[in-house]
């Protein structure tokens, strides 16, 4: 079944690519094609985003004109889920997208031609939250209790499992429940679940309105150094347009330095691409953006975790799926 889907996908991709070939922007600065510091091969790229606060660095780069400075015209396509952005990426509708590492590695293991080009951030406030009277004080207390995650076998359940095991519990005893993140706070308050893996804006909202507490930092202990998401392209695009990808990364480096130095930029930018109010945006927890991307370390960590908890069957050749120097 999976193979059939891939076959169809490949066919569709081929058709989509053939269809786009006529309209795709051609090389603009072929005379200056040197190392990855040369002018971008294409003048316009479409970038896929999601309405989450950790994309503030990217939106800041757009607004501050850092992509324009690199000779890149960036169009932004916001979608409602990561898997859809990966479909659009493979179909050639977008060239770079925000993606979590687990979905990207799973896609690669299934034969999708993805290439990771830059780290985004190491998260922030994410973690496992409960009501104060839940009797859950640390990760190991989750054994035998219900924990809400957005998807089983993805970032949230994997990091939770490793926290429970590292805390001396047995992660196989945790009852995971799949819930959309916007519903988690209500589910906690109504007692439908004992704990929830939450991120912003819901974590901050829950702490102020419902008094929920974080019993484990998602990125602590065994998960130290892991982050929720990075930037992905396709191998075809990255191979054919190394200068373009490098230009994207340089613009992101500049924007990342800005948002790390002046967090008020985040509060200004977030309301422009989400419906978070300016007041709520100002109270969001800080995000640990990555200034110097090290995808080998990042993906290596995720791969280890995924293999351990069965989210990946076999090792992926990481060198082949990481943009050089990222």
């Amino acid at each position: 079944m999976k193979r059939k889907t891939l076959g169809l996908l490949a066919l569709v991709t081929g058709v989509a690519l053939a269809g786009c070939a006529g309209g795709a922007p051609g090389p603009t600065g072929s005379e200056s094609a040197g190392a990855a510091t040369g002018a971008p091969e294409v003048s316009t790229i479409t970038v896929g985003t999601l309405p989450f606060a950790n994309l503030a660095a990217f939106y800041h780069a757009v607004e501050a004109g850092y992509f324009t400075d690199e000779g890149l015209d960036v169009e932004v396509v916001l979608a409602s889920s990561g898997p859809q952005q990966i479909s659009s990426l493979v179909a050639g509708d977008i060239q770079i997208t925000s993606s979590n590492y687990v979905s990207a590695l799973q896609g690669i293991a299934q034969g999708l031609p993805l290439e990771l080009v830059r780290e985004s951030d190491l998260g922030g406030i994410e973690g496992i939250y409960t009501l104060p009277d839940s009797g859950i004080e640390s990760a190991k207390d989750l054994v035998g209790r219900t924990l809400a995650v957005n998807a089983i076998g993805n970032v949230q359940s994997l990091t939770a499992s490793s926290l429970v095991d590292a805390d001396g519990g047995d992660a196989s005893g945790v009852q995971f429940v799949e819930l959309p993140p916007p519903n988690m706070l209500a589910a906690l308050e109504q007692g439908q679940v004992d704990a929830a893996w939450m991120s912003d804006p819901f974590a901050t909202l829950g702490m102020t309105t419902a008094g929920i507490v974080r019993i484990a930092d998602a990125w602590s202990g065994p998960n130290d150094g892991l982050g929720p998401s990075g930037w992905a392209s396709t191998t075809q695009f990255a191979d054919a347009n190394p200068n373009t990808v490098a230009a994207f990364n340089r613009a992101m480096d500049r924007a990342t330095a800005d948002v790390l130095e002046d967090p008020s930029i985040v509060a200004e930018v977030v309301p422009t691409f989400t419906q978070v109010t300016p007041e709520a945006a100002a109270s969001l927890a800080p995000i640990n953006w990555v200034l110097k991307s090290d995808l080998h370390k990042q993906l290596g960590g995720w791969q280890e975790l995924m293999l351990k908890y069965g989210a990946l069957d076999a090792e992926v050749d990481l060198d082949a799926v990481i943009f050089p120097g990222s």
Partner: peptide
């Protein structure tokens, strides 16, 4: 969807 994801 965006409003929902933004807790708005």
């Amino acid at each position: 969807f965006v409003a929902q994801a933004s807790a708005a």
